[in-house]
Design a protein around this nucleic acid. Structure first.
Lengths: 233, 233
DNA sequence: GTGCCTACTTGCACTGAGTGCCACGAACGC
DNA sequence: GCGTTCGTGGCACTCAGTGCAAGTAGGCAC
Protein backbone atom coordinates (compact mmCIF):
# COMPACT_ATOMS: atom_id res chain seq x y z
CA UNK A 1 0.00 0.00 0.00
CA UNK A 2 1.15 3.49 -0.69
CA UNK A 3 0.28 4.98 2.66
CA UNK A 4 -2.70 7.30 2.58
CA UNK A 5 -1.34 9.10 5.55
CA UNK A 6 -0.39 12.70 5.77
CA UNK A 7 -2.02 14.77 8.44
CA UNK A 8 -4.75 12.31 9.14
CA UNK A 9 -2.67 10.44 11.63
CA UNK A 10 -2.90 11.98 15.03
CA UNK A 11 -0.55 10.39 17.45
CA UNK A 12 2.99 11.73 17.59
CA UNK A 13 4.08 8.20 18.14
CA UNK A 14 7.53 7.33 16.94
CA UNK A 15 10.57 9.47 16.40
CA UNK A 16 10.05 9.28 12.68
CA UNK A 17 6.53 10.61 12.74
CA UNK A 18 7.45 13.45 15.04
CA UNK A 19 10.31 14.41 12.76
CA UNK A 20 7.99 14.35 9.79
CA UNK A 21 5.59 16.74 11.44
CA UNK A 22 8.44 19.02 12.44
CA UNK A 23 9.72 19.12 8.88
CA UNK A 24 6.28 19.83 7.48
CA UNK A 25 5.78 22.68 9.91
CA UNK A 26 9.23 24.06 9.15
CA UNK A 27 8.54 24.08 5.44
CA UNK A 28 5.20 25.75 5.87
CA UNK A 29 6.62 28.36 8.19
CA UNK A 30 9.57 29.06 5.91
CA UNK A 31 7.30 29.39 2.90
CA UNK A 32 4.91 31.77 4.61
CA UNK A 33 7.72 33.98 5.81
CA UNK A 34 9.37 34.13 2.42
CA UNK A 35 6.12 34.71 0.54
CA UNK A 36 5.21 37.54 2.86
CA UNK A 37 8.66 39.08 2.67
CA UNK A 38 9.36 38.85 -1.04
CA UNK A 39 6.18 37.81 -2.83
CA UNK A 40 4.98 34.43 -3.97
CA UNK A 41 6.39 34.21 -7.46
CA UNK A 42 9.79 35.62 -6.64
CA UNK A 43 10.38 32.92 -4.07
CA UNK A 44 11.60 29.63 -5.50
CA UNK A 45 11.12 26.20 -4.05
CA UNK A 46 14.87 26.09 -3.54
CA UNK A 47 14.60 29.15 -1.32
CA UNK A 48 11.93 27.53 0.80
CA UNK A 49 13.76 24.24 1.06
CA UNK A 50 17.00 25.98 1.98
CA UNK A 51 15.27 28.01 4.68
CA UNK A 52 13.74 24.87 6.12
CA UNK A 53 17.08 23.12 5.80
CA UNK A 54 15.94 20.28 3.60
CA UNK A 55 16.50 19.48 -0.05
CA UNK A 56 14.39 20.70 -2.90
CA UNK A 57 13.33 17.14 -3.56
CA UNK A 58 12.06 16.73 -0.04
CA UNK A 59 9.84 19.76 -0.38
CA UNK A 60 7.87 18.02 -3.09
CA UNK A 61 7.48 14.99 -0.86
CA UNK A 62 5.50 17.13 1.55
CA UNK A 63 3.64 19.42 -0.81
CA UNK A 64 2.46 18.65 -4.30
CA UNK A 65 3.22 22.15 -5.52
CA UNK A 66 4.45 25.51 -4.40
CA UNK A 67 0.89 26.73 -4.16
CA UNK A 68 -0.04 23.77 -2.04
CA UNK A 69 1.90 25.08 0.93
CA UNK A 70 -0.68 27.80 1.32
CA UNK A 71 -3.70 25.68 0.53
CA UNK A 72 -2.83 22.49 2.32
CA UNK A 73 -5.48 23.12 4.96
CA UNK A 74 -8.37 23.04 2.50
CA UNK A 75 -9.04 19.32 2.89
CA UNK A 76 -9.09 19.70 6.64
CA UNK A 77 -11.54 22.57 6.43
CA UNK A 78 -13.78 20.67 4.08
CA UNK A 79 -13.74 17.75 6.47
CA UNK A 80 -14.77 20.14 9.26
CA UNK A 81 -17.70 21.34 7.20
CA UNK A 82 -18.73 17.81 6.32
CA UNK A 83 -18.62 16.83 9.95
CA UNK A 84 -20.57 19.87 11.05
CA UNK A 85 -23.21 19.19 8.44
CA UNK A 86 -23.42 15.50 9.20
CA UNK A 87 -23.78 16.37 12.85
CA UNK A 88 -27.04 18.23 12.35
CA UNK A 89 -30.26 16.39 13.14
CA UNK A 90 -31.40 14.22 10.29
CA UNK A 91 -34.83 15.75 10.00
CA UNK A 92 -33.66 19.34 10.03
CA UNK A 93 -34.43 21.22 6.81
CA UNK A 94 -31.45 21.28 4.48
CA UNK A 95 -31.06 25.04 4.52
CA UNK A 96 -31.17 25.29 8.30
CA UNK A 97 -28.63 22.54 8.68
CA UNK A 98 -26.35 24.15 6.14
CA UNK A 99 -26.60 27.51 7.83
CA UNK A 100 -25.70 26.10 11.21
CA UNK A 101 -22.80 24.13 9.80
CA UNK A 102 -21.41 27.15 8.01
CA UNK A 103 -21.80 29.46 10.96
CA UNK A 104 -20.04 26.99 13.18
CA UNK A 105 -17.20 26.76 10.70
CA UNK A 106 -17.03 30.54 10.42
CA UNK A 107 -16.67 30.67 14.17
CA UNK A 108 -13.53 28.60 13.83
CA UNK A 109 -12.03 31.08 11.41
CA UNK A 110 -11.80 33.71 14.10
CA UNK A 111 -9.29 31.62 16.00
CA UNK A 112 -7.00 31.60 12.99
CA UNK A 113 -7.46 35.26 12.25
CA UNK A 114 -3.81 36.17 11.91
CA UNK A 115 -2.92 33.20 9.82
CA UNK A 116 -5.79 33.87 7.45
CA UNK A 117 -4.91 37.54 7.22
CA UNK A 118 -1.33 36.73 6.31
CA UNK A 119 -2.48 34.35 3.66
CA UNK A 120 -5.00 36.82 2.29
CA UNK A 121 -2.28 39.42 1.94
CA UNK A 122 -0.15 37.04 -0.06
CA UNK A 123 -3.05 35.93 -2.20
CA UNK A 124 -4.14 39.45 -2.97
CA UNK A 125 -0.87 39.90 -4.80
CA UNK A 126 -0.95 36.59 -6.63
CA UNK A 127 -3.83 35.78 -9.01
CA UNK A 128 -2.72 32.21 -9.64
CA UNK A 129 -3.18 31.42 -5.99
CA UNK A 130 -6.73 32.62 -6.11
CA UNK A 131 -7.27 30.27 -9.00
CA UNK A 132 -6.20 27.25 -7.03
CA UNK A 133 -8.09 28.32 -3.99
CA UNK A 134 -11.27 28.65 -6.00
CA UNK A 135 -10.71 25.24 -7.51
CA UNK A 136 -10.73 23.81 -4.01
CA UNK A 137 -13.97 25.59 -3.31
CA UNK A 138 -15.52 23.83 -6.23
CA UNK A 139 -14.87 20.58 -4.41
CA UNK A 140 -16.69 22.05 -1.48
CA UNK A 141 -19.61 22.87 -3.70
CA UNK A 142 -19.89 19.31 -4.90
CA UNK A 143 -19.71 17.96 -1.40
CA UNK A 144 -22.30 20.41 -0.08
CA UNK A 145 -24.58 19.88 -3.05
CA UNK A 146 -24.51 16.14 -2.44
CA UNK A 147 -25.28 16.50 1.22
CA UNK A 148 -28.08 18.97 0.56
CA UNK A 149 -29.52 16.67 -2.08
CA UNK A 150 -29.44 13.81 0.36
CA UNK A 151 -31.38 15.78 2.92
CA UNK A 152 -33.87 16.85 0.28
CA UNK A 153 -34.04 13.31 -1.02
CA UNK A 154 -33.56 14.38 -4.60
CA UNK A 155 -31.05 13.46 -7.28
CA UNK A 156 -28.54 16.32 -7.64
CA UNK A 157 -27.88 15.41 -11.26
CA UNK A 158 -31.53 15.99 -12.11
CA UNK A 159 -32.62 18.69 -9.73
CA UNK A 160 -30.84 22.01 -10.00
CA UNK A 161 -31.72 23.13 -6.52
CA UNK A 162 -29.00 21.44 -4.47
CA UNK A 163 -26.38 22.78 -6.82
CA UNK A 164 -27.75 26.29 -6.72
CA UNK A 165 -28.07 26.20 -2.95
CA UNK A 166 -24.51 24.96 -2.50
CA UNK A 167 -22.95 27.30 -5.01
CA UNK A 168 -24.74 30.44 -3.93
CA UNK A 169 -24.33 29.72 -0.24
CA UNK A 170 -20.61 29.10 -0.50
CA UNK A 171 -20.24 32.11 -2.76
CA UNK A 172 -21.87 34.25 -0.11
CA UNK A 173 -19.66 32.76 2.55
CA UNK A 174 -16.69 33.66 0.43
CA UNK A 175 -17.87 37.25 0.02
CA UNK A 176 -18.42 37.59 3.74
CA UNK A 177 -15.00 36.19 4.57
CA UNK A 178 -13.40 38.46 1.98
CA UNK A 179 -15.12 41.47 3.53
CA UNK A 180 -14.02 40.33 6.96
CA UNK A 181 -10.41 40.03 5.84
CA UNK A 182 -10.58 43.37 4.04
CA UNK A 183 -11.57 44.91 7.36
CA UNK A 184 -8.58 43.29 9.07
CA UNK A 185 -10.71 40.62 10.64
CA UNK A 186 -12.22 43.08 13.04
CA UNK A 187 -15.98 42.57 12.61
CA UNK A 188 -17.57 39.50 14.13
CA UNK A 189 -17.30 37.02 11.27
CA UNK A 190 -20.32 34.87 12.10
CA UNK A 191 -22.41 38.04 12.10
CA UNK A 192 -21.20 39.00 8.66
CA UNK A 193 -21.80 35.52 7.34
CA UNK A 194 -25.24 35.40 8.90
CA UNK A 195 -26.14 38.65 7.19
CA UNK A 196 -25.05 37.32 3.84
CA UNK A 197 -27.01 34.11 4.35
CA UNK A 198 -30.06 36.04 5.46
CA UNK A 199 -29.99 37.98 2.25
CA UNK A 200 -29.78 34.78 0.29
CA UNK A 201 -32.31 32.70 2.13
CA UNK A 202 -34.87 35.45 2.31
CA UNK A 203 -34.50 36.25 -1.35
CA UNK A 204 -32.23 38.71 -3.07
CA UNK A 205 -35.30 40.55 -4.29
CA UNK A 206 -36.56 41.16 -0.79
CA UNK A 207 -33.12 41.91 0.49
CA UNK A 208 -32.47 44.66 -1.99
CA UNK A 209 -35.81 46.42 -2.15
CA UNK A 210 -36.84 46.23 1.43
CA UNK A 211 -35.23 48.21 4.18
CA UNK A 212 -31.93 46.49 4.11
CA UNK A 213 -30.83 43.87 6.52
CA UNK A 214 -27.28 44.83 5.79
CA UNK A 215 -25.54 47.97 6.72
CA UNK A 216 -26.14 49.78 3.47
CA UNK A 217 -27.84 53.10 3.14
CA UNK A 218 -30.83 52.16 1.07
CA UNK A 219 -31.35 54.37 -1.81
CA UNK A 220 -33.58 52.20 -3.87
CA UNK A 221 -37.20 52.73 -4.60
CA UNK A 222 -39.33 49.80 -3.54
CA UNK A 223 -39.73 48.60 -7.08
CA UNK A 224 -42.45 46.26 -8.04
CA UNK A 225 -41.66 42.62 -7.67
CA UNK A 226 -42.81 41.87 -11.17
CA UNK A 227 -39.97 40.19 -12.85
CA UNK A 228 -40.30 40.73 -16.57
CA UNK A 229 -39.87 37.38 -18.17
CA UNK A 230 -39.70 35.86 -21.60
CA UNK A 231 -36.77 37.20 -23.55
CA UNK A 232 -35.68 34.77 -26.16
CA UNK A 233 -32.49 35.94 -27.86
CA UNK B 1 2.28 52.66 -27.48
CA UNK B 2 2.48 48.96 -27.03
CA UNK B 3 -0.51 48.07 -29.12
CA UNK B 4 -3.48 47.00 -27.04
CA UNK B 5 -4.83 45.11 -29.97
CA UNK B 6 -5.55 41.46 -30.14
CA UNK B 7 -9.04 40.47 -31.04
CA UNK B 8 -10.54 43.87 -30.57
CA UNK B 9 -9.75 44.96 -34.06
CA UNK B 10 -12.43 43.90 -36.43
CA UNK B 11 -11.53 44.63 -40.00
CA UNK B 12 -9.46 42.08 -41.84
CA UNK B 13 -7.67 44.98 -43.43
CA UNK B 14 -4.17 44.29 -44.50
CA UNK B 15 -2.44 41.09 -45.38
CA UNK B 16 -0.64 41.11 -42.07
CA UNK B 17 -3.77 41.33 -39.97
CA UNK B 18 -5.45 38.59 -41.94
CA UNK B 19 -2.43 36.38 -41.51
CA UNK B 20 -2.40 37.05 -37.81
CA UNK B 21 -6.00 36.01 -37.44
CA UNK B 22 -5.37 32.92 -39.49
CA UNK B 23 -2.45 31.95 -37.26
CA UNK B 24 -4.45 32.53 -34.10
CA UNK B 25 -7.29 30.40 -35.41
CA UNK B 26 -4.88 27.69 -36.52
CA UNK B 27 -3.29 27.55 -33.08
CA UNK B 28 -6.62 27.41 -31.33
CA UNK B 29 -7.90 24.73 -33.65
CA UNK B 30 -4.76 22.65 -33.34
CA UNK B 31 -4.84 22.92 -29.56
CA UNK B 32 -8.47 21.91 -29.29
CA UNK B 33 -7.97 18.93 -31.53
CA UNK B 34 -4.92 17.73 -29.66
CA UNK B 35 -6.43 18.28 -26.23
CA UNK B 36 -9.52 16.36 -27.22
CA UNK B 37 -7.52 13.55 -28.78
CA UNK B 38 -4.82 13.05 -26.17
CA UNK B 39 -5.70 15.05 -23.07
CA UNK B 40 -4.60 18.48 -21.94
CA UNK B 41 -1.53 17.70 -19.92
CA UNK B 42 -0.07 15.17 -22.29
CA UNK B 43 -0.03 17.69 -25.10
CA UNK B 44 2.96 20.02 -25.09
CA UNK B 45 3.14 23.50 -26.48
CA UNK B 46 5.60 22.17 -29.02
CA UNK B 47 2.95 19.76 -30.25
CA UNK B 48 0.45 22.54 -30.72
CA UNK B 49 2.92 24.83 -32.42
CA UNK B 50 4.07 22.06 -34.73
CA UNK B 51 0.51 21.21 -35.68
CA UNK B 52 -0.20 24.86 -36.45
CA UNK B 53 3.09 25.08 -38.30
CA UNK B 54 4.63 27.87 -36.27
CA UNK B 55 7.41 27.97 -33.74
CA UNK B 56 6.99 27.35 -30.04
CA UNK B 57 8.00 30.92 -29.41
CA UNK B 58 5.23 32.22 -31.63
CA UNK B 59 2.62 30.30 -29.69
CA UNK B 60 3.41 32.38 -26.64
CA UNK B 61 3.02 35.54 -28.64
CA UNK B 62 -0.61 34.66 -29.20
CA UNK B 63 -1.49 33.04 -25.92
CA UNK B 64 -0.08 33.80 -22.52
CA UNK B 65 -0.18 30.18 -21.46
CA UNK B 66 -1.23 26.75 -22.59
CA UNK B 67 -4.42 27.10 -20.60
CA UNK B 68 -5.13 30.41 -22.23
CA UNK B 69 -5.94 28.80 -25.56
CA UNK B 70 -9.09 27.44 -24.02
CA UNK B 71 -9.96 30.48 -21.97
CA UNK B 72 -9.08 33.26 -24.35
CA UNK B 73 -12.72 34.11 -24.90
CA UNK B 74 -13.37 35.02 -21.29
CA UNK B 75 -12.56 38.70 -21.71
CA UNK B 76 -14.88 38.90 -24.69
CA UNK B 77 -17.69 37.26 -22.76
CA UNK B 78 -17.18 39.59 -19.84
CA UNK B 79 -17.31 42.53 -22.20
CA UNK B 80 -20.60 41.17 -23.55
CA UNK B 81 -22.03 40.99 -20.08
CA UNK B 82 -20.84 44.48 -19.23
CA UNK B 83 -22.41 45.82 -22.38
CA UNK B 84 -25.66 44.01 -21.79
CA UNK B 85 -25.82 45.36 -18.26
CA UNK B 86 -24.91 48.87 -19.25
CA UNK B 87 -27.57 48.71 -21.94
CA UNK B 88 -30.39 48.27 -19.44
CA UNK B 89 -32.41 51.35 -18.51
CA UNK B 90 -30.73 53.40 -15.85
CA UNK B 91 -33.67 53.38 -13.46
CA UNK B 92 -34.28 49.65 -13.68
CA UNK B 93 -33.79 47.83 -10.37
CA UNK B 94 -30.37 46.25 -10.13
CA UNK B 95 -31.62 42.72 -9.88
CA UNK B 96 -33.93 43.03 -12.86
CA UNK B 97 -31.21 44.55 -14.98
CA UNK B 98 -28.79 41.82 -13.96
CA UNK B 99 -31.30 39.12 -14.75
CA UNK B 100 -31.96 40.47 -18.21
CA UNK B 101 -28.27 40.88 -18.94
CA UNK B 102 -27.49 37.35 -17.87
CA UNK B 103 -30.37 35.82 -19.75
CA UNK B 104 -29.36 37.62 -22.88
CA UNK B 105 -25.82 36.36 -22.49
CA UNK B 106 -27.05 32.83 -21.84
CA UNK B 107 -28.95 33.05 -25.10
CA UNK B 108 -25.67 33.59 -26.87
CA UNK B 109 -24.24 30.42 -25.40
CA UNK B 110 -26.66 28.30 -27.37
CA UNK B 111 -25.08 29.41 -30.59
CA UNK B 112 -21.72 28.09 -29.45
CA UNK B 113 -23.13 24.89 -28.09
CA UNK B 114 -20.68 22.51 -29.75
CA UNK B 115 -17.65 24.57 -28.94
CA UNK B 116 -18.65 24.83 -25.30
CA UNK B 117 -19.36 21.12 -25.12
CA UNK B 118 -15.95 20.27 -26.50
CA UNK B 119 -14.33 22.54 -24.02
CA UNK B 120 -16.34 21.15 -21.15
CA UNK B 121 -15.23 17.65 -22.05
CA UNK B 122 -11.60 18.68 -21.94
CA UNK B 123 -12.03 20.60 -18.70
CA UNK B 124 -13.80 17.75 -16.99
CA UNK B 125 -10.58 15.80 -17.27
CA UNK B 126 -8.29 18.61 -16.18
CA UNK B 127 -8.70 20.19 -12.74
CA UNK B 128 -6.11 22.89 -13.33
CA UNK B 129 -8.20 24.27 -16.16
CA UNK B 130 -11.17 24.58 -13.90
CA UNK B 131 -9.01 26.56 -11.56
CA UNK B 132 -8.12 29.12 -14.18
CA UNK B 133 -11.64 29.31 -15.43
CA UNK B 134 -12.94 30.03 -11.97
CA UNK B 135 -10.30 32.68 -11.51
CA UNK B 136 -11.69 34.44 -14.53
CA UNK B 137 -15.15 34.24 -13.04
CA UNK B 138 -13.90 36.06 -10.02
CA UNK B 139 -13.13 38.97 -12.30
CA UNK B 140 -16.71 38.79 -13.48
CA UNK B 141 -17.88 38.93 -9.89
CA UNK B 142 -15.96 42.10 -9.25
CA UNK B 143 -17.26 43.72 -12.39
CA UNK B 144 -20.85 42.74 -11.68
CA UNK B 145 -20.60 43.75 -8.03
CA UNK B 146 -19.38 47.17 -9.07
CA UNK B 147 -22.15 47.65 -11.56
CA UNK B 148 -24.79 46.46 -9.13
CA UNK B 149 -23.42 48.78 -6.47
CA UNK B 150 -23.57 51.65 -8.88
CA UNK B 151 -27.21 50.98 -9.63
CA UNK B 152 -27.97 50.66 -5.93
CA UNK B 153 -25.94 53.76 -5.25
CA UNK B 154 -24.02 52.14 -2.45
CA UNK B 155 -20.34 51.62 -1.79
CA UNK B 156 -19.45 48.00 -2.55
CA UNK B 157 -16.58 48.07 -0.07
CA UNK B 158 -18.96 48.91 2.75
CA UNK B 159 -22.17 47.19 1.77
CA UNK B 160 -22.08 43.42 1.44
CA UNK B 161 -25.11 43.22 -0.77
CA UNK B 162 -23.62 43.94 -4.18
CA UNK B 163 -20.95 41.35 -3.57
CA UNK B 164 -23.42 38.74 -2.42
CA UNK B 165 -25.73 39.45 -5.32
CA UNK B 166 -22.92 39.20 -7.85
CA UNK B 167 -21.32 36.11 -6.38
CA UNK B 168 -24.50 34.13 -5.82
CA UNK B 169 -25.99 35.11 -9.16
CA UNK B 170 -22.92 34.13 -11.12
CA UNK B 171 -22.58 30.95 -9.10
CA UNK B 172 -26.12 30.03 -10.04
CA UNK B 173 -25.44 30.84 -13.65
CA UNK B 174 -22.45 28.54 -13.48
CA UNK B 175 -24.53 25.72 -12.02
CA UNK B 176 -27.16 26.14 -14.69
CA UNK B 177 -24.60 26.12 -17.48
CA UNK B 178 -22.91 23.07 -15.98
CA UNK B 179 -26.24 21.26 -15.86
CA UNK B 180 -26.92 22.29 -19.43
CA UNK B 181 -23.56 20.94 -20.58
CA UNK B 182 -24.04 17.77 -18.58
CA UNK B 183 -27.25 17.22 -20.54
CA UNK B 184 -25.39 17.68 -23.83
CA UNK B 185 -26.72 21.18 -24.25
CA UNK B 186 -30.17 19.91 -25.05
CA UNK B 187 -32.42 21.84 -22.66
CA UNK B 188 -33.19 25.46 -23.38
CA UNK B 189 -30.39 27.21 -21.54
CA UNK B 190 -32.14 30.50 -20.79
CA UNK B 191 -34.93 28.51 -19.18
CA UNK B 192 -32.51 26.66 -16.95
CA UNK B 193 -30.79 29.88 -16.01
CA UNK B 194 -34.07 31.63 -15.35
CA UNK B 195 -35.12 28.84 -13.03
CA UNK B 196 -31.89 29.09 -11.08
CA UNK B 197 -32.27 32.85 -10.80
CA UNK B 198 -35.88 32.52 -9.70
CA UNK B 199 -34.80 30.27 -6.89
CA UNK B 200 -32.24 32.81 -5.84
CA UNK B 201 -34.28 35.97 -6.18
CA UNK B 202 -37.33 34.51 -4.52
CA UNK B 203 -35.31 33.15 -1.64
CA UNK B 204 -33.70 29.78 -1.20
CA UNK B 205 -35.95 29.15 1.76
CA UNK B 206 -39.10 29.56 -0.30
CA UNK B 207 -37.62 27.67 -3.19
CA UNK B 208 -36.88 24.60 -1.17
CA UNK B 209 -39.87 24.31 1.08
CA UNK B 210 -42.52 25.30 -1.38
CA UNK B 211 -43.51 23.55 -4.50
CA UNK B 212 -40.35 23.30 -6.50
CA UNK B 213 -39.58 25.53 -9.37
CA UNK B 214 -36.77 23.55 -10.80
CA UNK B 215 -36.22 20.39 -12.61
CA UNK B 216 -34.78 21.03 -16.05
CA UNK B 217 -36.35 19.66 -19.14
CA UNK B 218 -39.57 21.65 -19.15
CA UNK B 219 -39.94 24.66 -21.31
CA UNK B 220 -41.98 26.73 -19.03
CA UNK B 221 -42.20 30.26 -17.92
CA UNK B 222 -40.30 30.52 -14.69
CA UNK B 223 -42.93 32.90 -13.44
CA UNK B 224 -45.36 30.03 -13.33
CA UNK B 225 -44.20 27.90 -10.48
CA UNK B 226 -46.40 24.93 -10.44
CA UNK B 227 -44.59 21.68 -10.60
CA UNK B 228 -45.25 18.81 -8.22
CA UNK B 229 -42.64 18.47 -5.57
CA UNK B 230 -40.07 16.23 -4.08
CA UNK B 231 -39.01 13.07 -5.67
CA UNK B 232 -36.93 10.13 -4.75
CA UNK B 233 -33.87 9.12 -6.71
C1' DG C 1 10.19 50.57 -58.87
C1' DT C 2 13.72 51.73 -54.26
C1' DG C 3 14.19 52.19 -49.63
C1' DC C 4 12.87 52.60 -44.94
C1' DC C 5 10.02 51.51 -40.98
C1' DT C 6 7.37 48.53 -38.55
C1' DA C 7 5.67 44.26 -37.01
C1' DC C 8 5.78 39.29 -36.96
C1' DT C 9 8.66 35.29 -36.69
C1' DT C 10 12.31 32.40 -35.12
C1' DG C 11 16.05 30.18 -32.59
C1' DC C 12 18.68 30.18 -28.53
C1' DA C 13 19.61 30.27 -23.93
C1' DC C 14 17.98 30.44 -19.36
C1' DT C 15 15.05 29.98 -15.05
C1' DG C 16 12.11 27.37 -12.40
C1' DA C 17 8.33 23.80 -11.42
C1' DG C 18 7.62 19.16 -11.07
C1' DT C 19 8.94 13.99 -11.49
C1' DG C 20 11.39 9.41 -11.77
C1' DC C 21 15.14 6.89 -10.15
C1' DC C 22 18.62 5.12 -7.23
C1' DA C 23 21.59 4.99 -3.35
C1' DC C 24 22.34 6.13 1.48
C1' DG C 25 21.34 6.18 6.32
C1' DA C 26 18.51 6.21 10.24
C1' DA C 27 14.41 4.53 12.63
C1' DC C 28 11.67 0.49 13.31
C1' DG C 29 10.18 -4.33 14.55
C1' DC C 30 11.91 -8.57 16.06
C1' DG D 1 22.13 -7.81 17.26
C1' DC D 2 19.45 -8.07 12.28
C1' DG D 3 16.96 -7.26 8.08
C1' DT D 4 13.25 -4.21 6.66
C1' DT D 5 11.01 0.01 6.02
C1' DC D 6 10.92 4.75 5.21
C1' DG D 7 12.51 9.45 4.74
C1' DT D 8 16.08 11.89 2.46
C1' DG D 9 19.33 13.74 -1.00
C1' DG D 10 21.24 14.14 -5.41
C1' DC D 11 20.93 13.69 -10.27
C1' DA D 12 18.95 13.93 -14.61
C1' DC D 13 15.13 14.94 -17.28
C1' DT D 14 10.74 17.20 -19.29
C1' DC D 15 8.25 21.07 -20.03
C1' DA D 16 6.18 25.91 -19.27
C1' DG D 17 7.35 30.44 -19.80
C1' DT D 18 10.53 34.59 -20.85
C1' DG D 19 14.28 37.76 -22.61
C1' DC D 20 17.13 38.75 -26.36
C1' DA D 21 18.89 39.41 -30.85
C1' DA D 22 18.73 38.48 -35.64
C1' DG D 23 16.05 37.58 -39.67
C1' DT D 24 12.12 38.50 -42.81
C1' DA D 25 8.24 40.40 -45.01
C1' DG D 26 4.27 43.65 -45.26
C1' DG D 27 3.14 48.64 -45.27
C1' DC D 28 4.06 53.08 -46.79
C1' DA D 29 6.23 56.40 -48.29
C1' DC D 30 8.67 58.90 -52.44
Amino acid sequence: MVSARRSDQVGGDGLRERHRLRTEAALEHAALRLFAERGFDVVTVDDIAARADVSRRTFFRYFASKEDVLLADHPRRLADLRRALAGRPEDEPALTALRHAILSMAGGYEEERQRLLDRATIMARTPSLHARSLAHQRLWEEAVADMVAERMRVDPTVDLRPGVVAASTLASLRVAVAAWLARDGRPHLPTLVAEALDLLDGGLEQGLTRLSALRGRRRQSPAARSTPEEENP
